[in-house]
Amino acid sequence: CHSECLGNCSQPDDPTKCVACRNFYLDGRCVETCPPPYYHFQDWRCVNFSFCQDLHHKCKNSRRQGCHQYVIHNNKCIPECPSGYTMNSSNLLCTPCLGPCPKVCHLLEGEKTIDSVTSAQELRGCTVINGSLIINIRGGNNLAAELEANLGLIEEISGYLKIRRSYALVSLSFFRKLRLIRGETLEIGNYSFYALDNQNLRQLWDWSKHNLTITQGKLFFHYNPKLCLSEIHKMEEVSGTKGRQERNDIALKTNGDQASCENELLKFSYIRTSFDKILLRWEPYWPPDFRDLLGFMLFYKEAPYQNVTEFDGQDACGSNSWTVVDIDPPLRSNDPKSQNHPGWLMRGLKPWTQYAIFVKTLVTFSDERRTYGAKSDIIYVQTDATNPSVPLDPISVSNSSSQIILKWKPPSDPNGNITHYLVFWERQAEDSELFELDYCLKGLKLPSRTWSPPFESEDSQKHNQSEYEDSAGECCSCPKTDSQILKELEESSFRKTFEDYLHNVVFVPRKT
């Protein structure tokens, strides 16, 4: 048989008469490798580009789960590009990614509803959504962080984005990388972005840091009482949809009607710091009717980097990364020049730590249904340095008659930039024990000054392991946590139920 035959053949030295091919099969003959313009397919066939392209389009058009959109890589027609490569849609070739590779997620039936953290986790790592997304989240724990972890990498949506009755959302900033909504599939009414009845939605994105392009379709905003109209108009300008909307697409009466839409800028007039305090004062603000001013709200939190936005980490279910302080308005003076500047002394802060701070007014709604208010920009203030805590785990070892090696770990709280350490030492008198000992005694162990690591005695271990207080009263049991108490109650309830079950099964009433 021919060298490319495997198993047997019907005619000697003829690659077209093989029972099976050793390498690849091409047009009725066995070959060692697939010549151009053919590609290896499933490690035994040679196919042309049209064959591989037909497989790709067949799966793409069917949208069946589990099928493969075949691509070409290293002269092979394979189910998908290997790690580190992405497909070129024009020629199906796998090309190296520039940075992290995109991950295209194809949605069944063309859309997916995100109504819980669990459903959001199914899209973790996706960068391109081939379909439409509907966000409908009523509640949950730590929602802002969970949504950002699972949806934060999405850069492109081919269909539309719909935010509907998501009472738990305060902001859409968890879509931190969303840059493009194509609108290839539109919501009824030709809408590519749809926001309806979101009672706590206050911000779409921080438009000073976020760009969003909507290729096709219109915007729809109705019944978002805490979303200011200025935020919607800003989205029109940034996304390129200005002029597409009709009169009733953006409701003037049901958007922002319960919001404090600040239209003035508060400026800080005085800032002073110490290692654990920050004193702030800002310019006074009074609405047209000074009785509408209820006070100020001061927001602050630790910020290692200057990239904080107002609604980071917030949701309507209680999660809030900001510390909020309510401040009463100052006494009002008739003389504008003698107006008191409101302020606040922030206490209990960490030394040498940068804080993000902003302040906003708290006002009631005027009778004319106009909203007044003022808010400052987010500023960054760093507390002063102070003395560091003591170095940890000092170790001293003498390696000769004239040297001592000293080692330690950095302090747990540096409280500033540590530039150097101060080492103090003092000579001590020799131990009298060394002169009084009889060095001729056998088995004498000389006193040693070398360091030995501390260890816990058996008594201390027994005390720590004991669940009861000892007789001397030195140790006591740790208080039980809520989960331990709940577990004990469940076990007790189970024992009672099981005992009742045994009584009912074992003891049967005697027939009379």
Rank of each mutant, 00 (worst) to 15 (best):
C105Q: 00
H106K: 13
H106W: 13
L108F: 13
G110N: 15
K112H: 15
T113S: 13
T113N: 08
I114T: 01
I114Y: 02
D115T: 12
D115I: 07
D115N: 04
V117L: 09
V117A: 08
A120T: 06
Q121V: 03
Q121P: 01
E122S: 11
L123W: 05
R124I: 14
G125I: 13
T127W: 05
N130E: 12
G131R: 01
G131K: 01
S132K: 07
L133P: 01
L133Y: 03
I134F: 07
I135V: 04
I135Y: 01
N136A: 09
N136V: 14
I137T: 13
G139R: 12
N142W: 15
A144T: 05
A144N: 13
A144P: 06
E146A: 07
E146D: 04
E146Q: 08
N150G: 08
G152M: 10
E155F: 13
E155Q: 03
E156T: 09
E156H: 15
I157W: 01
I157F: 03
S158E: 05
S158M: 10
S158Y: 07
G159M: 01
G159V: 01
G159A: 15
G159P: 00
Y160C: 13
Y160T: 04
I163S: 05
I163H: 00
R164C: 15
R164H: 11
R165S: 12
R165M: 09
S166E: 03
S166N: 06
Y167R: 11
S171E: 08
F175D: 00
F175S: 01
F175M: 08
K177Q: 10
K177Y: 13
L178F: 05
R179C: 14
L180S: 08
I181Q: 00
I181A: 00
I181N: 00
I181K: 00
G183N: 00
E184Q: 15
T185K: 13
T185H: 13
T185P: 14
L186A: 09
E187M: 07
G189V: 03
N190M: 14
Y191I: 11
S192Y: 00
S192A: 12
F193W: 09
A195V: 09
A195K: 01
N198K: 00
N198L: 06
Q199Y: 04
Q199P: 05
L201G: 00
L201R: 00
L201E: 15
R202I: 00
Q203F: 03
L204F: 10
L204G: 09
W205G: 11
W205Q: 02
W205K: 06
D206G: 08
D206I: 05
W207A: 08
W207C: 07
S208L: 04
S208F: 10
K209E: 08
K209H: 06
H210W: 09
H210Y: 14
H210P: 15
N211Q: 14
N211L: 12
T213H: 15
T213V: 12
T213N: 05
I214D: 01
I214K: 01
I214M: 08
Q216R: 06
G217S: 03
L219V: 08
L219R: 05
L219W: 11
F220W: 07
F220S: 03
F221N: 00
F221L: 09
F221T: 04
Y223P: 00
K226T: 10
K226R: 12
C228A: 05
L229Q: 11
S230K: 14
E231T: 14
H233P: 04
K234F: 11
K234T: 08
K234H: 07
K234P: 05
M235Y: 15
E236M: 06
E237L: 13
V238N: 12
S239E: 03
K242H: 05
K242T: 07
G243E: 09
R244T: 11
R244L: 08
Q245P: 14
E246V: 09
E246G: 14
E246T: 08
E246Q: 14
R247S: 08
R247L: 10
D249G: 11
I250L: 08
A251D: 06
L252N: 06
L252C: 12
K253A: 12
K253Q: 10
T254A: 10
N255V: 04
D257A: 02
Q258M: 07
Q258I: 09
Q258P: 02
A259E: 04
A259T: 13
C261P: 01
C261W: 03
L265E: 12
L265Y: 08
K267T: 08
F268I: 08
F268P: 06
S269K: 12
T273H: 07
T273A: 14
T273G: 08
T273C: 15
K277T: 13
K277R: 03
L279P: 00
L280C: 15
R281A: 10
W282Q: 00
E283Y: 04
P284Q: 10
Y285T: 02
W286A: 10
P287Q: 03
P287I: 06
P288Y: 15
D289G: 01
D289W: 03
D289K: 01
F290D: 14
D292W: 14
D292I: 04
D292A: 07
L294K: 14
G295H: 03
M297W: 12
L298S: 02
F299C: 02
F299V: 11
F299I: 14
E302H: 13
A303E: 02
A303M: 09
P304Q: 02
Y305M: 08
Y305L: 07
T309M: 06
D312A: 14
D312Y: 11
D312K: 02
D312C: 01
Q314R: 10
Q314L: 09
D315R: 04
D315L: 06
A316Y: 15
C317F: 14
N320L: 08
S321Q: 15
S321G: 09
W322H: 10
V325A: 13
I327D: 01
D328N: 11
P330T: 05
S333T: 11
S333A: 06
N334H: 07
N334T: 11
D335G: 03
S338T: 14
S338Q: 06
S338P: 14
H341T: 12
P342N: 14
P342R: 08
G343S: 14
W344V: 08
W344G: 10
R347H: 15
G348L: 05
G348W: 15
L349R: 10
L349Y: 00
P351E: 04
P351A: 11
W352G: 11
T353Q: 10
T353K: 09
T353C: 03
T353G: 14
Q354A: 14
Y355L: 03
A356V: 08
A356I: 08
V359R: 00
K360R: 13
T361R: 02
T361E: 03
V363A: 12
T364A: 01
T364N: 08
S366H: 15
E368V: 15
T371K: 03
T371D: 05
T371C: 02
T371G: 07
G373K: 02
G373P: 03
G373I: 04
A374G: 09
D377F: 07
I379Q: 09
I379C: 13
Y380E: 02
Y380Q: 05
V381A: 05
Q382F: 15
D384R: 11
A385E: 04
N387Y: 08
P388A: 02
P391T: 02
P391H: 00
L392N: 05
D393I: 15
P394I: 03
I395L: 14
I395G: 15
V397A: 02
V397R: 09
V397H: 13
S401K: 13
Q403V: 09
Q403T: 04
Q403Y: 14
I405S: 15
L406V: 05
K407T: 04
W408H: 00
K409E: 04
